[in-house]
Write a protein that binds this DNA or RNA. Sequence first.
DNA 1: AGAGTAAGTTTACGATATAAGCTGTCAAGT
DNA 2: ACTTGACAGCTTATATCGTAAACTTACTCT
Lengths: 234, 234
Amino acid sequence: MLVTVDSRERVRAPLSRQQVLAGAVRYVDEHRLDALSMHKLGATLGVKAMSLYRHVASKDDLLDGIVERLWSEIPIDPPDGDWRQGIRHLAGALRDLVHRHPHAAPLLNSRQTIQERPLRICDALLRIMRDGGVPEQCAVALLRTIFVYGIGYALAELSIPAQPNRDAEDEVTRIRRVTNLLTPQASDNLVRTALLVCDSCDMTAQFDIGLDLMIRGLDAYLDSVSVDAAATQN
Amino acid sequence: MLVTVDSRERVRAPLSRQQVLAGAVRYVDEHRLDALSMHKLGATLGVKAMSLYRHVASKDDLLDGIVERLWSEIPIDPPDGDWRQGIRHLAGALRDLVHRHPHAAPLLNSRQTIQERPLRICDALLRIMRDGGVPEQCAVALLRTIFVYGIGYALAELSIPAQPNRDAEDEVTRIRRVTNLLTPQASDNLVRTALLVCDSCDMTAQFDIGLDLMIRGLDAYLDSVSVDAAATQN
DNA sequence: AGAGTAAGTTTACGATATAAGCTGTCAAGT
DNA sequence: ACTTGACAGCTTATATCGTAAACTTACTCT
């Protein structure tokens, strides 16, 4: 018996590479990265494992595609404002990205390919900094730092096991939770350091302090250069 | 027939957890991270896969153990000197570590556990910074930045495929190599940015510039605070 | 009507992590 | 001297993994 195709259902809308990648990101977000397999990903897309190879060359290609999707969530052009605002915005966007995809984020640093998206983002910010009178060498150095900081800081935050309701947590449970992460014979002092470094109550404020450090550093450099210039001019 | 144990050979010196982990690090260094399997690791240690489970609880445990070994290569106590030197030393040590273990290094950022070693390192440096008059909040912020910068910067360097003899490379091959990393329709401008961001000829000098930015930032902050203090005192 | 093509399927193979149970060796205690 | 128990490694078995090769549809174009 021939099953005629019903026009209101076709057969099924065919998958696309982007759909596969989107499915993969969703899957990794929900389960962990190591749980991602072609078989299971196919299942969530209503398709057998091998069908995915129509849209993806290999699992490696799939992972690269995930990274590409992640980068695409960062806007290329920073909002209006001077380079300081642009830098702050980028750093925040990177941190948010990692928070949005905690399980997929490690891929950002570990795939050994250069993605075009981050280069475009660099390009846009470099232009703004050049217009703001920042020497190129410094601009590049700051930019590199920001990328690494935004992503790395957020990844480090994730090392701390998620807490149901951190805000309502009292001092005792907070200390005990951190203590549990260490070997039992850790000194009190080490626990104090752990609390300080890994569990500041307001990680966002801490993030901004670090960010300020770098921007302030560049500002200080610019000042010293302009003072030098003025001095040699006299 | 009973095979009596020959005293000059015993049976074999039994494996230890540390030997297994050392073997794992070596294996990952030589082959890549995804090539590591219990079977193949066992083979290099002259043992069957299942025997490894005497010394590690699971493959996850093995990976955590690798991370632990990596951290143990960073000295806890910085050399004598003020906090600026301590910070510089730590950043350099982190970058060197990643360079020494390019294939294993991504694990440093992706395992969601807190390692005691880095906490001890923080502890030592925090003490030095406190003695140097740095307020604790800033010290923590800088420290976090340094960890992330040292590791992240080096990881980013690794995205650029290793070059046989970079020094002897002329301009044309350098540009073409970077161009090949991008989509063919990339604009000239983007290639320029890529060269700037990903392929500075002296990555070490660039690293130091970024580092200076942060230290300078903290110095500038300290200055502004002491000026404020002097002002309110007047 | 027939050929071509794109999407998905079936089957299959070798490699993977690891559970369960087994063997042989050593050291301490009787 | 003989037993016992713990320890280190081995064997076997299972479910899952990535992916190669060949096949089945169903749609499109001539």
